[in-house]
Simulated scan of single mutants.
Amino acid sequence: MPSVQQFQVTFDCREPERVARFWCEVLGYVVPPPPKGFATWDEYTRSRPPEDQDSWFACTDPSGVGPRLFFQRVPEGKVVKNRVHLDVRAGAGLVGDERLATLEAECARLVALGAVRVQLLLADDENESCIAMQDIEGNEFCLD
Rank of each mutant, 00 (worst) to 15 (best):
F22W: 04
Q5D: 00
G93C: 11
G66W: 10
P34W: 11
V65W: 14
K81N: 00
F22G: 00
D12G: 07
I136E: 00
G28P: 04
L94Y: 10
S55L: 14
L113V: 06
L27D: 01
S55N: 07
N82H: 13
E51V: 15
N127L: 14
V9Y: 08
F141E: 02
G66N: 06
L94M: 13
R117F: 03
F7S: 06
P32A: 10
G138Q: 10
F7P: 01
G66D: 03
G138I: 09
L121P: 00
F22N: 00
Q134Y: 07
L94P: 01
Y29K: 09
L122N: 06
Y29P: 04
A105T: 08
Q72Y: 10
A101N: 08
A115Y: 07
V95H: 14
Y44D: 01
A115N: 05
A115E: 02
V4S: 10
R99V: 03
L120P: 01
R99K: 12
E140I: 06
E76M: 15
V31T: 12
S55I: 11
V74F: 12
S3A: 12
R14M: 06
A123D: 00
C59G: 02
S55Q: 08
V116D: 02
P33I: 11
Q119C: 09
E25T: 07
P34Y: 06
L120N: 01
